[in-house]
């Protein structure tokens, strides 16, 4: 049972591992990888899919190495009731310098590789669809960026299109083949704008303008869910959106702007953040005669040019 030298065990383990790892990685890359969420609707979505696949292709051999070794050990080196002699102990089994150094070196190389890969994949696609806060440092190279504001409030998302008179819509329509800047903000608590198939996620914080970029490819449908617990109806805070061809988008945007013009007039002027009335009579923090040092009285804190 314990027969065979060290090289014998190593060779067997190595062969099993290599066959398994290569076979699985090949199957994964060709059969599973292309179907991995969140799909390929936008640049960031396909970026996320690509990154996930690369990580998986690296991770599986690592996991397989451990599992193959364990399975091998559990079978080959199981004790028996008849043979009570203890295995060979001594200083040799307490640690092997080469193995330990090799382990640390290998894991360090993998980890640093993953880090470099992740950083490149974060910076090159302009933040990879994540919220970059009010002053993004990784911006898209495209000259035409369509800004869309996402307003989270308990418990729904609404969208404003500043380039179309700032009209507000409960439906998110996005043109295909366009770079989009989502300006995500909230009116009450923290929400998270998770446009799943777009590969975009950005927290909606009150009085914060959280910007996330993506570039749409082909038309398609997508789901928006709230990704940060926001209270009672968090579970029901979702809606659906569409990526439509550019021409169709312009038709929709212009007609909606026209149709909702009266409504838009009643809205607070477009701003990147909206500060609810701090001085309010209903539920404000202060009695009305106290100046909370606030320069804003009601909605409409700053102009878009801030």
């Amino acid at each position: 049972m314990n027969g065979g030298g060290e090289t014998h065990h190593f060779r067997r383990l190595g062969v099993i591992w290599a066959v398994l790892a290569v076979a699985f990685d090949l199957v994964y890359y060709f059969a599973i990888g292309p179907h991995v969420p969140p799909g390929t609707l936008t640049s960031t979505a396909s970026g996320a899919q690509f990154d996930f696949n690369i990580l998986f292709l690296v991770a599986f051999p690592v996991m397989a190495a451990v599992w193959v070794y364990w399975a091998y050990a559990l079978i080959v080196w199981r004790g028996s009731k008849s043979d009570l002699a203890e295995p060979e102990g001594g200083p040799k089994s307490r640690g092997h310098l080469g193995i330990q150094v090799g382990w640390i070196a290998t894991t360090t190389v993998i980890v640093l590789g993953v880090f470099v890969f992740g950083t490149v994949e974060l910076i090159v696609p302009a933040g990879a669809g994540g919220g970059e806060g009010p002053s993004p440092i990784w911006t898209p190279t495209s000259h035409e960026v369509l800004p869309i504001q996402v307003i989270g409030q308990q418990w729904q998302f609404t969208y404003r299109y500043p380039t179309f008179g700032g009209f507000e819509s409960r439906q998110l329509m996005v043109p295909a083949g366009t770079t989009i800047a989502f300006h995500v903000t909230s009116l009450d608590v923290i929400h998270s704008f998770w446009a799943y198939q777009l590969g975009v996620k950005a927290d909606a914080n009150p009085s914060v303008d959280n910007v996330a970029y993506t570039t749409t490819k082909q038309p398609g449908a997508f789901t928006v869910r709230c990704g940060e617990l926001c209270g009672l109806w968090h579970g029901a805070m979702y809606n659906f959106g569409k990526v439509v061809p550019k021409a169709q988008f312009f038709v929709w945007a212009q007609s909606t702007e026209h149709r909702s013009a009266a409504n838009t007039k009643n809205l607070p002027p477009f701003a990147y953040t909206y500060v609810p009335d701090a001085n309010g009579a209903n539920g404000g923090y202060y009695p009305d005669n106290v100046d909370p040092y606030s320069k804003v009285e009601t909605y409409g804190a700053t102009s878009p040019g801030k």
């Binding site: 009085s207 500060v275 701090a278 909370p292 040092y293 606030s294 320069k295 804003v296 804190a301």
Partner: peptide, 9 residues
């Protein structure tokens, strides 16, 4: 310094 209210005046 949100809303310029870190330490007004």
């Amino acid at each position: 310094n949100n809303e310029d209210l870190w330490r007004p005046n």
